Simulated scan of single mutants.
Amino acid sequence: MANIELITPDTPREPIYQFLVEQMHLHYRRPLDSEHNKYFLQLAEHYSPDKRSSFYVLYENGEVVGTGCISPLEAHHRRPPHCVDESLWGYISRVYISPKAQSSGYGRQIYKVLEARAKEFGYTHLC
């Protein structure tokens, strides 16, 4: 059984950290011990509703098998040239599904949660 949970300061971080480091290595060939990966230990601080952002984890039988986040586009460097009012744009990122859980519909489930949260934050466009 799969469930999607919002990361909070009380969420156990180590399983999420390990999952993200593995995904970064798998997708970008970034070293598993990269200094950049330490950012993953502070996800609840970086993604919080008061910052119009949220980070979600998808668990299957207690194991992390997916992630995804929504944040303001204005907080990122890559912006579409046609983006006039950045406050209306949300940025979806860190969407990963474990290779063993791919083709399960979990990616679609995460996107639905992220899109609903984007509406709550007042985003009318997503990037």
Rank of each mutant, 00 (worst) to 15 (best):
Y28G: 00
S87T: 14
Q23D: 01
S53W: 00
E35W: 11
Q102L: 13
F19C: 03
P31D: 08
H76L: 03
K112R: 15
A44R: 01
A44P: 02
R29V: 00
H125M: 00
Y47P: 12
E63F: 09
L73N: 08
C83H: 09
V84S: 13
T124C: 08
C69H: 02
G90V: 05
H82D: 11
R52S: 13
E22P: 00
E22I: 01
R13M: 12
G105I: 11
N3M: 07
L73S: 04
A116C: 02
N37I: 03
S34T: 04
S93K: 08
R29D: 13
K38F: 05
L73A: 07
L88V: 02
H27F: 10
R79T: 10
L6E: 13
R52C: 07
Y96E: 02
N3Q: 13
R52F: 05
R52E: 06
E35S: 12
Q23R: 12
L41N: 08
C69L: 03
T67F: 02
E63R: 15
I110P: 03
P49V: 01
K112Q: 15
P81R: 12
D33Y: 13
E35G: 04
S104L: 06
P99T: 13
A101I: 03
Y123F: 15
F19H: 07
L114Q: 09
N37F: 06
G105S: 06
E63G: 00
Q102I: 11
C69P: 04
F40H: 12
N3T: 12
F19A: 01
S104R: 15
N61Q: 14
I7C: 11
Y123N: 03
R117N: 06
E45L: 09
M24Q: 11
G107V: 10
I70N: 10
S48P: 01
E5Q: 13
V95I: 15
I92D: 01
F40S: 04
D85F: 12
Y123T: 01
A116L: 07
R94L: 09
T8M: 06
L73M: 10
E35C: 01
R117W: 03
K112I: 01
A116M: 09
Y91A: 11
Y123A: 06
N37W: 08
L73C: 05
P99K: 13
Y59I: 00
G68F: 00
A118M: 06
N3F: 12
Y123L: 01
P12I: 03
K51E: 08
N37E: 12
M1F: 11
D10Q: 15
I70G: 12
R117C: 09
K38A: 10
S48K: 09
E60R: 15
P9A: 04
E45T: 14
A44H: 03
A44Y: 00
T124G: 10
A75D: 13
S104H: 15
Y111E: 04
G90N: 10
S98W: 12
A101E: 07
L126I: 07
